[in-house]
Design a protein around this nucleic acid. Structure first.
Lengths: 178, 178
DNA sequence: TACCAAGTGCACAACCTGACCAGCATTTCA
DNA sequence: TGAAATGCTGGTCAGGTTGTGCACTTGGTA
């Protein structure tokens, strides 16, 4: 399981994803019409994509800026070796303004995405972050503009393996792939 | 316009968002049952959240790792002043592996999120990025682990102003808003 | 050749959606 | 104090959609 082998999308999958991304409110039936395939096919594909984890879900996408958090920043944290990442991560997860955090290469640190209501507010959030003793230092970078908003479709397309015929992603043996 | 005053969610809004985030496939009717309000109310709230831009949409969330892009990295680009951000952004947007890009404070540069199939593949992508002459230098940071996966719910909760009564965000007149 | 996976088309009942209504409570304002 | 506006409730309606099961066809494999 977790089988990295299924990692192959055909063009129908890609089109389906693109279609759903473009018009999320449409249903399975509408998709089948647009893609010119049977409804059952769309249903089956969708189920598979969900089962494989390619599509994680259809949650509402919230725009932080629309609820007052217009400032985005990336903060790199240098943490004390004695504390460990997990403890720091636990601390960070208590702060709502921390939208995500990754451990990264380099000085063995953390990179997190922070939002705030204003630059002043950002200071407050950062103070809150560094108040934890496991954190030695924080260096903040403010995002001025979003040159490329988060997107995945181009990637989906580039990951597509052309054949549009039978779904046969998994002919005889479906593993071996990777 | 963009009325920063509408930027206020009450607890019903927050609960609705949380509910949708938890179980995206449920419909308006089911929401109204769960939240113990009339269906029309849920519909109205949802419409308003969408209209205000708080909820951007319900697109499928794709997991890059599930389609073979298991390596995530953050690349900081130093760009030549002579070229400007936009030209570079245009170049970047041609590369599917670039999932997002922001201009940032500091040396007036760009921070982007890149995925790749492997570390070797990452090298390929980076080479492709720096092939553009407007880019002077790229420094790459690889994300080793996702300590806090992208999340917004805590933020939504913290942005909530409790009163559960009338939405009256925009008092007497409701138009003027957008 | 027989088998299997995948797709097609069809049918059914159950359900949900969008639209509409009148009634009621609360707040705002004259 | 009374009128108007706003939001929520609970109900109806027709029409479309979903989930499911089934028979049939197709292409590749053992």
């Amino acid at each position: 399981m977790t089988t990295a082998q299924d990692v192959q999308l055909d063009s129908l999958d890609a089109e389906l994803i693109a279609l759903l991304a473009a018009e999320p409110r449409i249903g399975v039936l509408e998709c089948s019409r647009r893609l010119r395939v049977a409804r059952g096919t769309v249903q089956a594909r969708l189920d598979k994509l969900l089962a494989r984890g390619v599509i994680r879900g259809f949650g509402p996408e919230i725009e932080p800026a629309a609820i007052g958090f217009g400032v985005t920043s990336f903060v790199t944290l240098e943490i004390s070796q004695r504390y460990g990442h997990d403890a720091v991560a636990a601390h960070l997860s208590d702060i709502p303004e921390v939208l995500e955090a990754h451990t990264i290469t380099g000085s063995g640190d953390l990179l997190c995405r922070i939002v705030a209501r204003s630059n002043t507010d950002l200071q407050r959030v950062i103070d809150q972050i560094v108040s934890y003793e496991g954190i030695v230092r924080a260096s903040t970078i403010i995002a001025l503009a979003e040159q490329i908003p988060y997107r995945v479709l181009p990637l989906v397309r580039s990951a597509t393996v052309n054949p549009r015929q039978a779904g046969h992603t998994s002919s005889t043996r479906e593993n071996n792939a990777d």
